[in-house]
């Protein structure tokens, strides 16, 4: 090889080794391999080489160009590796540090349970029908088979407003009459009536003066108590988990006859007895019954042709059982330390 080429080669390779970053590398490439680079010039200047040396010169110059190109690629590759390694080294982190969690609010536990109840009954064709909180005595009692002075009225401690005959509804049952009048007559009905109810009751861990209730009402030409049992069993299995045992006991509500209370085997002890179920193994989940003929009539339905069932339950009570909440007053206390536990 000609000495000038040899010198050029050594100089170039030495320069390549000192090119420590992408910019230096690019400068090197331009200096040697660029359009006006030194190696490129070698080929351009081949005319000045004596003719007999030209083939050897051309070969040598070409070889040099290839060698330097390869060296450049290798060096470039090495540099990428180096910078990647440096980048990775700087990324070291303690993965146990807390993440930055997006701020997302939670749905109130009562509303969660209301949604759950609504969804379950929707699978059985029950739709939501809302009615008012401030009610007339007529709708809250009279049309539900409780004329003035009826002793069953004692079952509900009532808030009266200063307007005579206007009260705070003590249960969602007036919605039965509203629903029948709105959706009937002569049409089958399947609705649930969620809403806030009010009781003149000293507030304690077990009793609130305000609470939610969900009433259900089904009316049709062939609705039976067996159907009521079927719906309650289905609901309980969807809400509390499959395989639950249910128990129906005779009870009394003036607007249903016959009336029952439905109990589910205790979700905490499975029926063997614990403090939550007061050692009886059963938890009361709802009151229910066949709509009283007088109530059907008051809603515009002929009790000889139509029959129906109704039921009522308390979402707060259900939530208390499912989440082990011992005091109902947490529900409307608006304490974030309580609410945020339920997402």
């Amino acid at each position: 090889m000609r000495e000038d080429l040899q010198l050029l080669r050594e100089g170039a390779l030495a320069g390549l080794q000192t090119a420590g970053d992408a910019d230096a590398l690019e400068a090197w490439r331009i200096q040697y391999l660029g359009r006006k680079g030194t190696v490129t010039d070698l080929m351009r200047n081949i005319g000045q080489v004596p003719a007999e040396e030209r083939p050897a010169y051309g070969q040598a110059a070409n070889a040099l160009k290839n060698e330097l190109s390869e060296a450049f690629d290798a060096r470039q590759q090495a540099l990428v590796q180096e910078s990647l390694a440096a980048e990775m080294a700087a990324e070291g982190v303690d993965v146990t540090l807390p993440g930055r969690r997006p701020q997302i609010g939670g749905v109130h536990p009562s509303n969660q349970t209301l949604r759950e109840i609504t969804d379950i009954f929707a699978t059985m064709g029950f739709q939501v029908f809302a009615s008012r909180d401030v009610e007339t005595d007529e709708y809250n009692f009279e049309l539900l088979n409780m004329p003035p002075g009826h002793p069953a009225r004692d079952l509900w401690d009532t808030f009266y407003t200063t307007t005579p005959g206007v009260i705070m509804r003590t249960h969602t049952s007036p919605g039965q009459i509203h629903a029948m009048k709105a959706l009937g007559p002569d049409k089958p009905i399947r609705v649930i009536l969620p809403g806030m109810c009010y009781r003149y009751e000293q507030v304690s861990a077990r009793a609130e003066m305000m609470f939610h209730q969900v009433e259900g009402l089904a009316i049709g030409r062939h609705i039976t108590m067996a159907d009521l049992k079927g719906v309650i069993v289905e609901f309980a299995n969807q809400l509390y988990g499959a395989g639950r045992k249910l128990r129906f006991r005779c009870s009394h509500f003036p607007f249903t006859e016959p009336s029952v209370e439905a109990d589910v085997d205790c979700i905490l002890c499975g029926g063997s007895g614990c403090a939550v179920c007061k050692y009886v193994g059963w938890l009361e989940i709802m009151g229910a019954g066949m709509v009283h003929p007088t109530v059907l009539r008051n809603g515009g339905y002929d009790p000889a042709e139509w029959s129906g069932f109704a039921f009522g339950m308390g979402p707060e009570r259900i939530t208390m059982l499912k989440s082990g909440i011992s005091d109902i007053r947490y529900f409307f206390g608006n304490d974030l330390r309580f609410l945020e536990q339920f997402g």
């Binding site: 089958p188 089904a218 049709g220 039976t224 108590m225």
Partner: peptide
């Protein structure tokens, strides 16, 4: 009440909305 069978309503489904 435990003697009453458990059935699913076969009555006409009311209009859904």
């Amino acid at each position: 009440y435990d003697q009453i069978p458990t059935t699913l309503m076969d009555d006409a489904l009311p209009p859904q909305w």
